[in-house]
Amino acid sequence: MTLVREQGSPGSSGPSARPRELAPRSGPATVGASKLHAQLTGVTKLFPAPSGENPVHALGPIDMAVERGEFFAIVGPSGCGKSTLLDILAGLAAPTDGTVVFENKPISGAVPPGIGVVFQEDASFPWLTVWDNVAFGLRRAGLERGETTKRVEHWLRFMGLADFARAHPAHLSGGMRQRVCIARTLVLEPRMILLDEPFGALDQQTRLLMGDELLRLWRATGATVVLITHAIDEACMLADRVGVMTARPGRFADVAVTRWPGDRDSRIVSDPSFGQLTGRVWSILRDESIKAIGHAEGDIGGRSP
């Protein structure tokens, strides 16, 4: 694999030499109408508070557009509304204000066909074997048996689960269970895959390898991927664009364009420009994280670089 750099030079210093092109600080990353896959416009979410108190302003207003086939990652401080944003994009939660459009149709109150979601927590069904877990959605959709078998076996092989088809999730490691959940989503061939910190519970090595698998399946399916993560390196390594969110109420502080080649993998972390990119994202995220945990910047240890 070669790391083709489209712009910037690794050896030079200073902000102008940054290999990443960063979008305007507060603006949404807009895309051409023909490529547009999902769009959030003026999305705001307020959660009702106990009587007498003001409602909690969790999110927004947010504008966001995702291209067809794009890998978009979202990082943000704890409690900034990342998961709420994903729920709204999936149709699992309704925004208080604003609109969500997927494939030119507004999303209202239900998950539209073509969207698959992988959650942070293990959502595999413990009473079913790995095979039956993966086949679950296809059976509910009433797919013909031969086709179900073909697809399940393909995704079991792809996710390295073929030898565990007859095992129950209780007998698998956390990483493998998460792979079962990913396979269960992918077998339905979603056109947009939403992942809510899917590797959050895994150790660093496993996370990097799962990242490689995620890139591999992204290339194999051609689906649009939106990944929520708290790991800056994961976001910068995997995505085409990285949306950096502010502390609550979450908005996009910045959208960084990574410009990695399509055939990238986790070895990209050794590229010098990777460090510059994560540094750039962290410099924004650091200030927001300090706000999120409610400290004055001085308490944490000086100004950000």
Partner: peptide, 29 residues
């Protein structure tokens, strides 16, 4: 597990299907 119920929503299961295929096997043991 609330994640199982969220999965049911993502898979667009009806209430009856959710009870039959997720709630029942989860509570029977």
């Amino acid at each position: 597990n609330p994640m199982h119920l969220r999965t049911a929503r993502v898979l667009r299961l009806s209430s009856i299907e959710t009870v039959r295929t997720i709630v029942a096997p989860a509570i029977i043991p």
